[in-house]
Design a binder for these strands. Structure first.
Lengths: 349, 349
DNA sequence: CTGTTAGCGCATTCAG
DNA sequence: CTGAATGCGCTAACAG
């Protein structure tokens, strides 16, 4: 028993279509796959049969017959903060899944802050790769490298950080200005009328995603919460040491600091500084990316909210987009939209 | 750099394994698929070859050879609030995708509030279905029906609303107590020290998911924000009219109403009542499920935050879980975890 | 322009 | 217990 009789409805096959249209399998295949070399009349006959029988190609069989493998290159940062480490792990996990789809990925690590190094890797992508996913950097040389790949017919998707002006196939990541606005709204509302100074830290102001977050943050703070005093953004280089120092300086200079938004990494530095100053609980601190560390700080009530993106989702999405492009499949658009997640300690995964 | 040496791009096939082990294709297949009738010695030989060559079955080829179709039944509510309508749409969209995987889904509608009707549908599931996904209802008869299906070997996944005590394969939905706690934290923090009364509306207190949300909400309110006065929950039956009436009553009786949490549907009723009373902007209102209506209320500043779940994700997840179970594939656990989404007007999709 | 044929990698009879 | 043979639905040469 079990798998009940496969019943009758074994759907129409290409052969059924061919027979119904009175042509050969090959011809049916030609029109279904929009290859030329078929008279308009027979095209019409076949298409009629297709819609009459409700034919839908079996992609599994097609891939098997085509016997084609894909090879993708993922370019990830070598400097490993927690989020990037998680991303790398998820890419590895995705690789297993992809292998089942006859697609393989190689990973190459490069210093994200170094545009030339990144561009060099992109420029040197070997032929034989069917697609590239990369953490991008908004720099002319990087943009040029991406465009060159596009010219060579290699689709590239940008991951986490975008280069909108390049001819990339797709951007897999969050809307960063919106993420900044989200942080600002939470900041303003959590502060609930308290007066004082709000500071902002970023990894680097020349990283597009960080800059965009600040832009969004400042926009909403100015418009919605004009009573709060915004400090100019300081840089922490996504590094715990430097962020610690920066935070200490802020605390020293502003006794009335009530809010802190870190648009980049280095949260352990902030935690250390706040704890040392004994002001961890009173200051509203909003951070990015759910990692083991930020999770702990959130649970302890130091971080008040985390704005995040799901690295697993991003890795899978990049792979799906590349694969769909290469094999001509459609993709479910809203499955590929990366959401701006908000985590409080109550809705942690 | 570049293409790590996977050497030749084609991976090992079962035939390669067979040859390497010095057995026939059939025998290799027997051990790979754990069928018996093979001597331990040859099993060992084959397994050695498998791991030596790093063999991984090609699922596409396997499905093709097996030539098997699956048929699933989705049981959805007939009473159509916006969220359920969206869910139904997403199920339809998922069906298209599933068809490509040789799996087909039928949808049956039933009144969710009627346990007997639901149980009847579940009891009457025709043989020939390989799996069932259903919006459940925590009722003995429904539980029994689910267990019967399980006994018949039909996997069932509960969707959106769970019956934890039943032998369902999987629950696809959010952690509702946690959702309630999330709402409470937002409520308390958005109120930022304001004093007054907080009201709660639910569709029905006998719906497990609504009850759980209230439980979580009350828990956090009592523990974290003891100064706010909690009103006993009122029922709106997930209906705009009744929810309107309930809200009007609340507004009439409590001039000091500062917060409103709706754990169910019927948000249009609330909006109407608040607008009429002219208190839409001052009351912190937290609602569930992002729909065209709640989105509008959020953008207009009436709703302050929406706690949500992604119906597209849920529909796809239910399908994937069923399909993976039926075809013996593993699934990516954390792709199937349904998150508790928080939407402010800044991070709307 | 159209048809014939030989696989793709695997599951499954049916013999031995 | 094991092996040879057949076919799933489709693609891709290669003939006509």
């Amino acid at each position: 028993m079990g798998a009940g009789e496969t019943g009758v409805i074994g759907r129409a096959t290409l052969e059924d279509v061919a027979r119904a249209a009175g042509v050969s399998l090959a011809t049916a295949d030609r029109v279904v796959n929009r290859r030329d070399g078929v008279r308009d009349k027979t095209i019409a006959r076949v298409e009629a049969a297709v819609s009459r029988l409700g034919y839908r190609a079996d992609p599994a069989a097609a891939r098997l017959a085509r016997n084609q493998n894909f090879r993708f290159l993922f370019v990830l940062p070598s400097g490993a903060n927690s989020f990037m480490t998680m991303l790398a792990e998820q890419v590895a996990r995705t690789a297993e899944w992809l292998a089942a789809q006859r697609a393989f990925i190689d990973v190459e690590h490069v210093d994200v802050f170094d545009a030339d190094a990144l561009a060099r890797v992109l420029e040197g992508v070997l032929p034989g790769y069917h697609g590239v996913a990369t953490i991008a950097l908004d720099h002319p040389r990087v943009r040029a490298a991406i465009d060159d790949l596009a010219d060579r017919g290699v689709p590239v998707v940008t991951l986490v950080s975008d280069v909108p002006s390049a001819r990339r196939l797709h951007y897999v990541g969050i809307d960063n200005p919106a993420a900044g606005r989200t942080a600002a709204t939470l900041m303003g509302r959590f502060l609930g009328g308290r007066q004082g100074v709000v500071a902002v830290i970023a990894g680097s102001l020349s990283l597009r995603d960080h800059a965009e977050r600040l832009y969004g943050f400042n926009q909403v703070m100015a418009r919605e919460f004009p009573d709060l005093i915004m400090l100019p953004a300081v840089q922490g280089r996504d590094d715990n040491e430097q962020t610690l120092a920066a935070t200490e300086a802020l605390l020293r200079q502003h006794a009335d600091l009530v809010g802190l938004y870190n648009a980049g990494a280095g949260n352990r530095g902030i935690a250390a500084a706040l704890q040392q100053a004994g002001r961890a609980q009173e200051i509203v601190w909003i951070a990015h990316e759910l990692t083991p560390h930020t999770r702990r700080f959130l649970l302890h009530g130091e971080i008040d909210a985390i704005i995040s993106q799901d690295p697993g989702h991003e890795a899978r999405s990049a792979a799906r987009v590349l694969l769909a492009y290469c094999s001509g499949d459609r993709l479910v658009a809203d499955q590929e939209r990366i959401g701006i997640d908000i985590f409080l300690r109550d809705n942690l995964p």
